[in-house]
């Protein structure tokens, strides 16, 4: 895949929930292409389906109808087991509340995705060290999440997301729980990962300042995308 080939293709994608007798449509007949190397910010009002879309892209939810293609292959119809393997090989997740394991050190948290690979213990350690250094947390490898600030925890979470070298990083409000300065540092790290390492990043945010760090801004509203041009 080169830098402009489609990584994701969404075809006629719909997501509906049933609440009691009522069916709520989150979005309907959505089409979109995300290219390799993109850094996309998905914005929109609360309830517009931003996180739902991210879940579908990450294979942690399934569409009501339509197709999600990743590198030309459908992932929406994979079995749970195959989807888990797909996520392990292709997707790195960054969550608003970091989702680190509180009893593990930063290094042990980062190592988790590598436990799903056939890498040796030494190779895993090397990869963890590199990932933590990339996010500037090399010195904090032995700290537990409770001993780290919010920004530091998010850096560890980013290291965990990139350690297995996934093709796409899916970030759900990655700066939603951080102050402006720390948020900017995190966003610069994501920019660096996109620019220097060629990671495709899809970030959901409600913060225009955060979105401004992305290459593309997509606004999801009433089930439709609207792309905002970048200056």
């Amino acid at each position: 895949m080169n830098a402009t080939s489609p990584l994701y293709e969404l075809k006629d994608l719909s997501k509906r929930y049933t609440r009691g007798k009522e069916t709520v449509t989150i979005f309907d007949a959505l089409d979109m292409t995300i290219n390799t190397g993109d850094f996309i910010a998905i914005m929109g009002p609360s309830g517009s389906g931003k996180t739902t879309l991210l879940n579908l892209l990450g294979g942690i939810d399934r569409p009501s109808s339509g197709e999600v293609l990743f590198e030309g292959q459908r992932i929406d119809n994979l079995s749970q087991g195959k989807l888990a393997k797909w996520r392990a090989a292709n997707a790195g997740f960054i969550f608003q509340f970091y989702n680190l394991m509180p009893t593990l050190t930063a290094a042990q948290n980062v190592e988790l995705p590598l436990l799903l690979t056939s890498l040796s213990g030494k190779a895993r350690k090397d990869r963890v060290k590199t990932a933590l250094e990339i996010v500037g947390m090399g010195e904090r490898a032995r700290h537990r999440p409770g001993q780290l600030s919010g920004g530091q925890q998010q850096r560890v979470a980013i290291a965990r997301a990139i350690v297995a070298d996934p093709k796409v990083l899916l970030a759900d409000e990655p700066t939603g729980d951080l102050d402006r300065t720390t948020a900017d540092e995190i966003l610069e790290t994501l920019q660096l990962l996109n620019a220097e390492m060629g990671k495709t990043i899809i970030m959901v945010t409600h913060d225009p300042a955060a979105a401004s760090h992305a290459k593309r801004e997509l606004h999801l509203n009433k089930g439709r995308f609207e792309e905002k041009g970048k200056a």
Partner: peptide, 14 residues
């Protein structure tokens, strides 16, 4: 719950 879901999101099995 969130820890277990996170592990599964990362690719761990049930």
């Amino acid at each position: 719950t969130r820890e277990l879901a996170t592990l599964r999101a990362i690719g761990f099995g049930g």
